[in-house]
Simulated scan of single mutants.
Amino acid sequence: MDGSVVALLLVAVVVAAVGGWAVATHNSFARQRRILTEAWGQIDVELRRRRDLVPPLAAMIAGDLPAAADLAGACERCAARAGAAAADPAEQARRENALTAALGRLLAAAETSPRLSGAEAFARLHGELTDVEDHIAAGRRFYNAHARHLNARLETFPAGLVARLSGIRPAIYFAAEDPAVRAAPAAAFEDRELRRGR
């Protein structure tokens, strides 16, 4: 075998290795995007569950506390805005944060009513809301962890080059704006129930 054949074989092996690595890297990024899409789908289910709880909760509180009718209406409007299609998780987060803040104000108003805090229907809705908030927080952590991993890989070389050539863009985080918004809006009730020894 002469030197030119050996050189051609070496070039062919190198090209095949680089090509195989590029395909494997692309497929790895595609898997990561699929995980993000599935994680977002789970968050979306919980966000819809939370929005579905707003009308009965708002009606119950406004029915018992006529002074809270404006807060109940504002909460329902926030829920409607949050339910509209958003451009990306960051926009959805802004809308959901507004809903969380509105729910917090509404529940703070409801805290002034001894009848509501003792009502079984209100306790059930409150429990469902707390459960949903916990699922949203867990989903947010899962989604953001995978978004962070994808974004970190996009910044590495040469994998980031393959991603850019494949049109893969950085993931957008889904995060609460501030620590007050991150807390479940029902926390005031939970604290009060603990103080009362329930």
Rank of each mutant, 00 (worst) to 15 (best):
Glu38Gln: 13
Gly139Tyr: 11
Ala58Phe: 06
Leu103Trp: 07
Ser28Tyr: 02
Leu107Trp: 11
Pro89Thr: 11
Asp88Ile: 07
Pro114Tyr: 09
Ala68Glu: 05
Asp131Tyr: 08
Cys75Ala: 15
Gln92Thr: 10
Leu106Val: 13
Arg196Pro: 00
Pro158Ser: 02
Arg124Tyr: 02
Val11Asn: 08
Pro185Ser: 09
Ala171Gln: 07
Arg148Met: 00
His126Thr: 07
Phe174Thr: 00
Ala22Lys: 05
Ala163Asp: 04
Ala137Met: 01
Pro170Ile: 00
Gln42Asn: 12
His149Gln: 09
Ala102Lys: 11
Val18Gly: 08
Val13His: 10
Glu91Tyr: 04
Ala12Tyr: 11
Ile35Arg: 13
Glu46Val: 02
Ser117His: 11
Ala159Val: 03
Thr25Ala: 14
Ala137Leu: 05
Ala119Ser: 13
Arg169Asp: 06
Asp88Lys: 09
Leu71Asp: 08
Arg50His: 07
Gln42Arg: 15
Ala176Thr: 15
Leu57Tyr: 08
Arg105Lys: 13
Tyr173His: 12
Phe174Val: 01
Ala22Trp: 12
Ala85Lys: 15
Ala101Gly: 10
Leu125Ile: 07
Ala159Glu: 10
Arg115Trp: 01
Ala74Leu: 12
Ala68Arg: 09
Ala80Pro: 01
Ala30Tyr: 09
Thr37Gly: 08
Glu96Met: 14
Glu46His: 14
Ala180Thr: 11
Ala93Asp: 09
Ala138Ser: 08
Arg140Thr: 08
Gly73Asn: 14
Thr100Ala: 14
Ala110Pro: 01
Thr25Lys: 09
Ala145Asp: 15
Trp21Lys: 12
Val132Gly: 00
Asp191Gln: 15
Pro56Ser: 07
Ala69Gln: 15
Ala93Met: 07
Arg77Met: 06
Arg148Gln: 09
Gln92Cys: 04
Gly160Trp: 07
Arg196Val: 03
Ala171Val: 10
Arg140Tyr: 03
Ala101Thr: 15
Val15Pro: 06
His149Pro: 00
Asn144Gly: 01
His26Ile: 03
Ala186His: 07
Asp191Gly: 08
Gly167Phe: 09
Ala121Gly: 08
Ala171His: 09
Arg195Phe: 04
Leu106Ala: 02
Ala16Tyr: 13
Gln42Ser: 12
Ala74Thr: 14
Thr100Pro: 00
Arg182Thr: 13
Leu154Trp: 04
Ala74Gln: 15
Val6Ala: 14
Ser28Gln: 11
Gly73Tyr: 00
Leu47Gln: 12
Leu36Gly: 05
Arg48Ala: 05
Arg153Asn: 01
Ala138Asp: 06
Leu165Thr: 11
Ile35Trp: 06
Ser117Met: 10
Ala86Val: 08
Glu190Val: 05
Glu193Val: 05
Asn144Phe: 03
Ser4Val: 15
Ile136Gln: 02
Asp134Ser: 06
Asp178Gln: 13
Cys78Glu: 11
Gly83Pro: 06
Ala119Ile: 01
Gly41Ser: 07
Asn97Cys: 14
Ala12Leu: 15
Asn151His: 06
His149Met: 02
Arg48Ile: 00
Leu116Ile: 06
Leu107Ile: 08
Thr100Val: 14
Ala22Cys: 14
Ala82Phe: 13
Gly197Ala: 02
Glu96Ser: 11
Arg192Met: 04
Val6Met: 15
Asn27Tyr: 06
Arg192Trp: 04
Arg48Asp: 02
Gly19Lys: 11
Cys78Gln: 14
